[in-house]
């Protein structure tokens, strides 16, 4: 327990001959000066190290970190805002696209309807023209048929009269046939 014994002639008044303390070492007057001297030296050294080097450095580190953190927070806020804007723009684009698609569909439908109507109209008109032409032809045919009937009737009447041996005047015969046909 006792550290290496100190030679008795050199031992101070506070250390017994066996190297252990006499009384409390804390109250030994002859050691006070030594402790106070080295303590003051120590405190001055620590004070200079702290106030010149360590504390400004740590304060700078903490301030820098604070700055970085608030910077990063601002940046994050900015990015969030940008993301929100992008989302809004995307949604707007989506809505626009939907409206555009609807418009185009509507237009196409209207166009097709117009075209169909126009085609139908054309067809109707062609059909009408064709009908009119046919009617004309039929009328012509009918007219020519009537004419033919008249001629055939006159020819037949003449022949018939000839056969009967009556022999009639052609002009008289024609007039009678005309009259008959009209009648």
């Amino acid at each position: 327990m006792a550290e290496e014994p100190i030679a008795q002639e050199l031992a101070s008044a506070c250390i017994g001959p066996d190297g252990s303390a006499i009384g409390m070492p804390q109250l030994c007057g002859e050691w006070v000066g030594n402790q106070v001297f080295w303590l003051i030296l120590t405190l001055v050294a620590i004070y200079f190290v702290l106030s010149r080097v360590a504390l400004p450095r740590i304060a700078a580190i903490l301030a820098e970190r604070q700055g970085t953190i608030s910077n990063d927070l601002a940046k994050a806020e900015d990015l969030k805002r940008q993301a929100e804007e992008a989302e809004k723009a995307y949604e707007k684009a989506l809505v626009d696209a939907r409206a555009e698609a609807q418009r185009i569909a509507e237009e196409t439908r209207a166009e097709i309807r117009d075209e169909v109507a126009k085609a139908q109209e054309d067809a109707d008109r062609q059909i009408a023209a064709k009908t009119a032409e046919s009617e004309q032809q039929i009328a012509a045919i009918r007219a020519s048929a009537l004419e033919n009937v008249e001629a055939v009737a006159k020819d037949t009447a003449e022949a018939f009269m000839g056969a009967l041996g009556l022999g009639a005047d052609r002009a008289e015969l024609d007039g009678a046939v005309d009259q008959r046909l009209k009648g």
Partner: peptide
């Protein structure tokens, strides 16, 4: 044997001399 206070003894680091104000001791 109790020497509970012996750990507080101030002694010179080099040699066995007396402890003066500027002596380099275990305190130092």
């Amino acid at each position: 044997v109790f020497h509970p206070m012996d750990q507080f003894i101030v002694k010179p680091l080099f040699g066995d001399g007396a402890v003066g104000i500027f002596t380099v001791t275990n305190v130092t």
